[in-house]
Amino acid sequence: MLIRVDPASPLGLAEQIAAQVRAAVIDGSLRGGDKLPPARELAAGLDVNMHTVLRAYGVLRDEGIVELRRGRGAHVRSDLAEPDRERIALRRELRALLDRAARIGLTPDQLADELRKASS
């Protein structure tokens, strides 16, 4: 799979890598059970530390998107169903919303209030 990073971006390198794997899972180009690139290869190709790539994979594991097993590398979770994919996409949009709220000075709590107001 294709991964690109921009060292000048305010986002961290690990977050950039994780975001692209997440996007590939959401748009279906990575399916359940697919193997992610070996961390060593990604790190060497992007000229970043291997721990940066492993941190990105760790973030994705904590989100329930990939599973890491010693000696077998990182795989997209094979039990990942369509609703999970939707939820991953939703979380990504929420994170973008939080960033936008922070830019205009809204705390997450204030954003939640706005959300409640909008749904009532």
């Binding site: 294709l2 991964i3 990073v5 060292p7 690139p37 190709g45």
Partner: peptide, 15 residues
């Protein structure tokens, strides 16, 4: 079809 900026780092890994 891939547009690359001059300083951008990019990798493709496949098996």
């Amino acid at each position: 079809s891939v547009a690359l900026a001059d300083g951008e780092r990019v990798v493709w890994v496949g098996q």
